[in-house]
Amino acid sequence: MDPHLLRTFVAVLDHRSFSLAASALGYTQSAVSQHIAALEADLGTRLVERRPVAATPAGARLMEHAPALLLRLEAARADLARLHRAPSDRLTLACSPAALGAPVARALARLRASARVDVEVRVVGREAVIEEVLTARADLGLLDGVAAPSDPLPLPDLGPTVTLAASEGPLAVIFPDGHPLAERDAVRLTDLAQAQWIDSPDTAVPLDRLRAVCGADGFRPRFRHLGTDIHGLAALAAADHGLAVLPLPLAAALPGVTAVPVRHPRLVHRTELLHPADPSTPARRLTGLLTHRDGSRVHEDAD
């Protein structure tokens, strides 16, 4: 399967247009049509309906594989390029929103105090963190999610990328100030399954993850919040658009909402650090600070 043809296939279905895909890829529309026809001939099945542009059942199944296949190819190219890189005093850190907090900021301060390092921090969605590290656009990634205590996050196959635990801490549901449940000492997530929720997959705990860990239906979105703006999410919750689950230290500092700890099920907010098998010197130093390998202790719920 030719990756160039596969990339064109993904672009056509992402844009739902042959002409827009051609513009995005820098091809002619005729070339895009030829690529799709060649891929269909290779696989022996029709993949794209032309009018209107949409995936056939076979095309929809291929789309389940295509993005991951293309990412792994790009990751392999980036991994080989790292073998020939020159030493650098620059560090690019990709973080999901709830993974970037005071402990990370303190670790970065210690890194810069011990060595001259130019640092760039990018706050992106969870899937984008993985992509940034795999494709060498970032030296390190910090990715957050929920898990049982000491369990790893459920991540896809990352090839030679190394995954290390960075921190674990408590979770909380955010309620509007004055909400009847905001006075409680703790809540059970299963008791809130039929409440109104904000679906914020890159900022809060994704609702499909809550359904999975609670083993319960519900957690249906009343409102969707896309992006990485935690304060925007808090403003929506404060205006009674729905509930969301965040790490407790972060939630407690947000205006207009009350953070109530999650008592059941027994879950933690977990942050994991991703880096290539051969990290740069600044990345290796920051990894030591974040995973306590330098003798320090950096807790998620530290003051």
Rank of each mutant, 00 (worst) to 15 (best):
M1G: 14
L5R: 14
L6T: 12
A11E: 10
S19M: 04
A24S: 11
A24E: 07
G26V: 05
Y27L: 14
H35V: 03
E40Q: 07
D42G: 10
L43E: 05
L47Q: 02
E49V: 15
R51N: 04
V53M: 06
A54L: 11
A55I: 11
A55G: 14
P57Y: 05
A58G: 07
E64S: 07
A76P: 05
A81L: 09
H84A: 00
S88N: 00
S88H: 03
C95Y: 13
P97W: 01
A98W: 01
A98Y: 00
A99G: 04
A102G: 09
R106N: 10
R106W: 13
L111F: 01
R112W: 01
R112E: 04
A113I: 00
A113M: 03
S114M: 03
V119E: 00
G125R: 07
G125F: 01
E127D: 06
V129N: 05
V133R: 04
R137D: 06
D144C: 15
A148L: 06
D151L: 09
P154L: 12
D157C: 08
A165Y: 07
G169C: 13
L171C: 09
L171R: 04
I174P: 00
P176Q: 12
D177T: 15
D177R: 14
P180L: 08
D185Q: 13
A186Q: 11
V187L: 15
T190M: 02
Q196G: 15
W197L: 06
P201N: 07
V205Y: 05
R209D: 06
L210N: 02
R211Y: 08
R211E: 04
A216M: 10
R220F: 11
P221V: 13
R222E: 15
F223V: 15
G227A: 03
T228W: 09
L233F: 09
A234Q: 02
A237T: 15
A238S: 15
A238I: 13
H241V: 11
L243E: 01
A252H: 09
A253E: 13
L254K: 04
T258E: 10
V262K: 02
V262Y: 06
R263K: 07
D278E: 10
D278H: 13
T281I: 01
R285I: 08
T287Y: 13
V298I: 07
H299K: 12
E300R: 10
